[in-house]
Design a protein around this nucleic acid. Sequence first.
DNA 1: CTGAAAGCGCTTACAG
DNA 2: CTGAAAGCGCTTACAG
Lengths: 353, 353
Amino acid sequence: MPARKSPADTASRPAAAAGKAATINDIARLAGVSKKTVSRIINHSPLVRKDTREKVEALMREVGYVPDPLARGLAFRRSFLIGMVYDNPTAQYIVDMQYGALDALRDSGFELVVHPCDTRSPGYIDSVRRFVRQQKLHGVMLVPRASEDQNLADMLAELSCRYTRIVPVGFDDHDGRMIVTHDRDGAAEAADYLLTLGHKDIALITGALTYRSAIERTEGFVQALAMRGVEVPKSRIIEASYTFESGVAAGEKLLAGKDRPTAIFCGNDEMAAGVYKVALRAGISIPRDLSLVGFDDSPLASRLWPSLTSVRRHTRDTGRIAAATLIRTDPSPLPVASVRPHLIVRDSCQPPA
Amino acid sequence: MPARKSPADTASRPAAAAGKAATINDIARLAGVSKKTVSRIINHSPLVRKDTREKVEALMREVGYVPDPLARGLAFRRSFLIGMVYDNPTAQYIVDMQYGALDALRDSGFELVVHPCDTRSPGYIDSVRRFVRQQKLHGVMLVPRASEDQNLADMLAELSCRYTRIVPVGFDDHDGRMIVTHDRDGAAEAADYLLTLGHKDIALITGALTYRSAIERTEGFVQALAMRGVEVPKSRIIEASYTFESGVAAGEKLLAGKDRPTAIFCGNDEMAAGVYKVALRAGISIPRDLSLVGFDDSPLASRLWPSLTSVRRHTRDTGRIAAATLIRTDPSPLPVASVRPHLIVRDSCQPPA
DNA sequence: CTGAAAGCGCTTACAG
DNA sequence: CTGAAAGCGCTTACAG
């Protein structure tokens, strides 16, 4: 198969090596096939003879050819970008989720575009819609709490934009893929652990109950106690807001006076750190006078002293699964995915005095 | 100007409102100008008559027209994506930098693509090169420590990819823009503060001295002390590695035995948290027996008890400036930008006993 | 100041 | 299993 000799031909040879990258036309000409055949190979079409495929693939590798995502995106009317939409203040959680997503996207040709938002601001859904439409996103990862907003998911479905929702508990959604983190189970494991140590007077500091995760953790904890015959009186449940400061305030309420619980379960590590501060100031020794369990297993947990027993969330795995779901080519429906939390025991608990 | 009546015409009218987005052709036809004129307006060319411009702009607003970044990218041979390349384990720092960059990118049509990397892995520069070439990035933000690698910057210059380098101290770089964070000044302020409180026996826990930031902070601190006649003996300088665990180890060395310093300056808050742990375990009271200053002003600083005096870095501002530099259209060279740190005084220091 | 033609690097729709 | 033509929505290079 004699390649045509033309100025364009001689020009493109060195081009591949040096400055300009090879295009689908270069590959087609060099391989002696049509560009459509190259396109079929790029897109893993089965309608290509095996030896043709292998010859062209070898050439692409040799030349270092990679299809231009801009050109593909224009023709497909869809980019090779995955959006991550989130409304979460915890830096470590966000970064872990990003790392997980990038694990799945590595060498896939897809890239991650980050898009924090404020779910309390009135125009935020429109803002995400503009983002998705303008960038022609291939898919969107919805991270708590944004993932809990059905209106957001509905908007994406209306745009025919595929999405995955990372949610603390499963529920009905016909279009998107669910990744369920089962926060309830993690809280139940914390409850069982404290019961096993012998605690009976146990208090609870929750995140704002407008967060589904706060509800799940609270109910999971309270029900696990109830299953083993331990009731939590209303006065021992304080609704805080997932922040350090709210943990300080809740800790002060629970630890003032003589009638103190022997253990406290906190809805996240930040609030637990707040309780550490209160205890330290009041001369209450952890774990001798007070056992404490957090949720998140953030870096903070091992930086506190004594180190904090906490529920680990496997955030990076969660992010990886969410992104992997968005870029898979197999169109068959996927079952709901589950990532289960589990308790990491450290030094902040012991049997009550 | 009677718009031609054609099937395409009637089809595009409702299209703009509902399903399909308007294109440059729709705008050109509706406005009665050529698409090239619309293109000129999109690109802010001065070669358009004022009333033509205003008429077309009004129409674009009315229709909600936004140019397709994929098509523009293909024609320009450059995407509308800004890459953030980093090799930094501190979640809060990364997230702050991202927020800052997004502040600058909001409503600009540019999006942020995150790209963590491992500067110690041998192939990382090639990996970033592939990222930049394949995505045809418009520009790249280089965050410490990746920003300190001249080979990385050289590679980007070779690709004619614009970049900004966020660096602890200014140095020569002909191509990229520098954002200098002056870590030295922050450390000097910490030194002055401790001197003013009356400390004379002051120790230092540094990050790994392969990091430029660690060198700058160390030298800034030691020189500021020297300026006021206080020498730091070698034995009072411990090289650690910016991690909590390394801070614990360094703290144990410095606080064992009777001959203890009255104050310690830590190269970051993580290591300071390690010293807190050592002090708490050893019954050394902060700040009564030991004053402590950190660097970063991370959330950790206010979660420790007593809260940690630390040097704030204005990371979000830094990210905003870095991204803004990359997307500005004015081609005039920009002077080096400076972001200066400053000390946030909290409760971890007092005069020596 | 304005426009018609060609092209960016791919894919879709159709034909064989 | 393979290919020639038209098109995705823009910009560049040229002409006027």
